[in-house]
Design a protein around this nucleic acid. Sequence first.
RNA 1: UCCCUAGUAGCUCAGUUGGUUAGAGCGGCGGACUGUUAAUCCGUAGGUCGUAGGUUCAAGUCCUACCUGGGGAGCCA
Length: 478
Amino acid sequence: MKRLKIKDILLNSKIGETIIAKGWVRTKRGSKNVNFIALNDGSTIHNLQIVADVSIFDESLLHEITTGAALSVTGKLTESAGGGQKIELIAETIELLGAADPDKFPIQSKRHTMEFLRENAHLRFRTNTFGAIFRIRHAMAFAIHKYFNEKGFNYLHTPIITGSDAEGAGQMFRVSTLDPKNPALTENGEIDYNEDFFGKPTNLTVSGQLEGELGALALGEIYTFGPTFRAENSNTTRHLSEFWMIEPEMAFYDLKDNMDLAEEFLKSLIKYALENCIDDLQFLASRLKQEEKSKPQDQRSMDLIEKLEFVLNNDFIRITYTEAIKILINSKPYKKKKFQFPVEWGVDLQSEHERYLVEKHFNCPVILTDYPKGIKAFYMKQNDDGKTVGAMDVLFPQIGEIIGGSQREENLEKLETRMKEMNIPSEEMWWYLDTRRYGSVEHSGFGLGFERFILFVTGMGNIRDVIAFPRTPKNAEF
RNA sequence: UCCCUAGUAGCUCAGUUGGUUAGAGCGGCGGACUGUUAAUCCGUAGGUCGUAGGUUCAAGUCCUACCUGGGGAGCCA
């Protein structure tokens, strides 16, 4: 007899069949004659109810069936006599695969705080919430590859270790094999990187974009999907030191093509989640609703599934940075001096401004384009007005910037001038500039923060709860 | 990094203007119960009050420093 997964048992198995199920005990309830065991094997949010007649099992065995224990159960499927489920398994044999000392096992069959579960990240997979989150996370990773594959994009593996410090996306983690206590020194007493593993200073990547462009300008369309590292001392609900990023890069795409792709891409992922993860989404939605009950009426947000459907069925608002500034200057909070930070053309928008636009003014995802060149990266396409660049940021309610992208500057001269202005060492970037020397074409790309997107789909509030083992300043446990 | 806030039983929390032996619910354990749904009922054990100093006759409670968590801001995806 073959072991069946609980998902398949609940979906396909027939009343009267004798089967084997294996999994972990969520709860056990008992009375004099019969014990009920909720068994979960991670294949679905739903549990299989095991019915154990007390008279046919050893008392010591039943005693060891506690929350967290692993069991193998053989029995016959029957229509459930109780109300909570359609079918249940009448146990004939129960094998205790692994006990879980009830005095020590930290996960109880009750609500735990997210903080407590974060400290028990090795066991939190065994809760309904984290089971749902990680099944959805997997489904979204799969849907990303599926989407790009179907569009003819090539998955490009850009390096994790980079010798370039010109990516300009923030503080980097150094990669070195030098002895930190006694590093090789030059005659001047400085660290001699010639003696280091790669013969030069190296770091963990903060973006695969520059290498991605090299691939796109030959393969046509590529995407990367890999870990990204930022050594910034950020302590927020939306930042990780190690996170996953998806970076498509497309030849012959202008800014509008780029936006169209970003919007279609995000919607296809949401659609996939609604079509394939509805059980888990419904669980998270009801969990969220429970949590919202403690909040004041005006701070409650839309139902999770309604929110996903709303984003799926509505066009993203597309406006330029310049138009956004006008809207902000005419806004109530601006006139009442409620904004903490100034609003004027040329300064970067603060999250209070983005939140106003997305959550109050439009109440819809917004794509902001054509930012002042002074606040954006060197590689962005310089517009004809001489003041702005072809950038685009996709802003989502509650989360803020979920995608940052741009059309890339393909003109060698303009790019070199801009690099000089921004003190970017162009000698080190010879390989990047070569793409503009030989057969340069217009191209575009963007970066999607995977965990930020998972936050949106799951409705979770803290980015540390949508990655298995979060790395943040002062925390690299597990 | 800055601002705010918290740290008391395995978990979630209460603990009054400083005052005797620090409490509750859940969980655990023991028992009861004809099918439960986070079962229910009765009983029971369980504490270096984050750490180190200080003030005081007396500190869980006040002060200082540090550590850790949470929320917000900045940096960004």
